[in-house]
Design a protein around this nucleic acid. Structure first.
Length: 554
DNA sequence: CTGACTTGCGCC
DNA sequence: AAAGGGCGCAAGTCAG
């Protein structure tokens, strides 16, 4: 399949260089930027892979012009992957502008302008960088896996732009009604809503402190101690343990105050336009390969406000999430047949009980979370020996990753995403912190703590990162399936992705296609399992719901 | 005053 | 019941 590398030239021109698989150039076009959408649309008639510096710099404008692309190679994201992958000979990637690519940031402008002024991306050469990628990939160990990862990451970049373009349907009127019921009418700027004001009066009275501000952790802590309560923080869980007349009002205040600050009227004003919530999704934004987001806190839309996410008239949401993604991924990547057997049932934890590895579902869950996150004390530490005996390969994999991290070594995911090099001083000599007099004191203990902490990070990295790769393959395959489901043409009636969060997707679909979407979501999950783990028998069962509102999916 | 950090809490 | 990993965001706090 041919590739077309795009580069901005001057203020309003684009150079497009088409090349074959073996790297030979078959044609160079130079066109006005305004003609780019037609150019891309025309070349999309036959299979092609677009190569560009950064999807966030090209794709939003194309989508705004009504143009979808099938596949791309995102140089920014691919560069970041290749630079850290232990599968890659770094010498093949090195060039004078490597630092420029290292530092390239995605753009999240509300206005999808194609030619931002003074963009650092324009000082980079996409043609040369693309060639380096081809060479580095061809020479890489595990080039099949790494190639899959590059393709999946780039596909994720397309999905991310498309989801922002489409937006998550959001009913501001439903959201406002919810806020009014819980908080009272929208207050004037700088004022507290009526419900919070009433709770504030009760809290101040209970503490006999008319000036108390419960939003100030320090002030609240002083008030609690003055009331004779021996606490060291003001978290809700800590407060729940206390026997004091102020506690119920305080907990209610915290909960509603959180709603107001995170997803109140200001949030609606800022992030919901024309019935759509449009956060920016940032593929590869987390070191493990998970996505980050910016704008409206898309990674933590509370269940409390999800009733406001409502499908359009005649449309439905298909909400799907994977049950216990990470332990299943661990079973697959370690080739642990015993754990895969437990995962054969829809509930992996129940499967572990059935096999006799643990006594209860609760033990299975707490034990596996501990194994993947690195808890060594308490309940989950107690369960580790039993798990290790029953699932030596799975537990052995995360233990090995932890030990490697503690030694300061790099670990990598199944497809080859590498962990960062530890930068802390713990691997070397202790640094002089310049503190008053205590430099060096307790540093051995500090270093040990830091070493174990990094080991927990690398332990989790291999599982969380491979889980992110599974999800990326799921998403990429589902995107293609949904497109085919819509039939030919580019009408507005197609099912499309509107939300993705680690192991959950939301598809907005015409009602009559909802059943077909459910099928495709399941097929895509099975396909992702095969892509990552081949014939190894590991299942990825989904919880799928067809609903009018996102809140109805649970 | 601004910017960096801390605290607390939402999501997986 | 939390712990143990990864985030983003808002408000408070504190140093410069």
């Amino acid at each position: 399949m041919n590739r077309i590398v795009l580069a901005r030239r001057g203020e309003a021109a684009v150079e497009a260089r088409e090349c074959t698989d073996d790297g030979s150039t078959v044609g160079v076009d130079r066109l006005p930027a305004v003609d780019l959408p037609d150019f891309v649309r025309e070349h999309e008639r036959t299979p092609v892979r677009w190569v560009w510096d950064d999807t966030t710099r090209w794709y939003p404008a194309l989508l705004a012009a009504g143009v979808r692309v099938e596949r791309c190679h995102d140089l920014r994201l691919a560069h970041a992957l290749l630079r850290r992958s232990p599968f890659v000979d770094q010498a093949l990637l090195t060039a004078g502008e490597t630092g420029g690519w290292d530092g390239l940031q995605p753009v999240t402008a509300a206005d999808p302008a194609l030619f931002p002024l003074d963009d650092p991306a324009d000082r980079l050469d996409p043609f040369a960088e693309h060639e380096r990628h081809q060479v580095a990939l061809a020479a890489a160990a595990e080039r099949g896996r790494l190639g899959l990862l590059l393709a999946a990451e780039s596909s994720g970049a397309l999905v991310a732009a498309e989801m922002t373009h489409a937006g998550l349907p959001w009913r501001a009127d439903v959201h406002e009604r919810l806020l009014t019921e819980l908080l009272g009418p929208r207050p004037a700027p700088g004022m507290r809503p009526a419900t919070l004001e009433r709770l504030l009066v009760a809290i101040r009275a209970a503490f006999h402190d008319p000036g108390l501000n419960p939003d100030s952790p320090g002030g609240l802590l002083r008030a609690l101690r003055a009331a004779g309560l021996p606490v060291s923080d003001t978290r809700s869980w800590t407060l729940e343990q206390l026997d004091h007349p102020a506690v119920p009002a305080l907990l209610e205040y915290k909960k509603l105050s959180r709603l107001l600050q995170a997803n109140g009227w200001n949030w609606l004003d800022s992030w919901v336009r024309d019935g759509r919530f449009r956060p920016y999704f940032l593929p590869g934004g987390v070191v493990t390969g998970r996505w980050a987001s910016t704008g409206g806190g898309a990674l933590s839309v509370p269940t409390q406000v999800r009733p406001a996410a409502v499908a359009d008239d005649g449309w439905r949401f298909v909400v799907a999430d994977v049950a216990q993604l990470e332990p299943r991924v661990l079973a697959g990547m370690s080739g642990d047949a015993e754990m895969a057997q437990a995962a054969r049932s829809a509930d992996l934890y129940q499967g572990m009980v059935a096999s006799g590895a643990v006594a209860s579902r609760a033990d299975a869950k707490v034990g596996m979370l501990g194994a993947m996150y690195g808890a060594t004390r308490g309940e989950s530490g107690r369960l580790m020996p039993g798990l290790t005996r029953r699932y030596p390969r799975a537990i052995g994999l995360v233990e090995a990753a932890a030990r490697a991290g503690e030694r300061g070594e790099i670990v990598h995911t199944l497809l080859g995403r590498g962990s960062p090099v530890p930068t802390g001083a713990w691997a070397e000599r202790p640094v002089e912190l310049g503190g008053p007099g205590d430099a060096g004191e307790s540093s051995a203990e500090d270093r040990d703590r830091a070493r174990r902490s990094w080991g927990r990070f690398t332990r989790n990295f291999v599982v969380q990162g491979t889980g992110a790769e599974w999800a990326l393959c799921w998403l990429a395959d589902l995107r293609n399936r949904l497109w085919r489901l819509g039939g030919p043409g580019t009408g507005n009636g197609r099912p499309h992705l509107v939300f993705f969060l680690h192991d959950e997707v939301v598809v907005h679909t015409p009602e009559e296609l909802a059943g077909a979407v459910v099928e495709e979501v399941r097929r895509a999950a099975a396909a992702a399992g095969r892509l990552l783990f081949g014939a190894f028998p590991i299942d990825f069962p989904l919880d799928v719901a067809v609903v009018r509102s996102w809140a109805d999916a649970d």
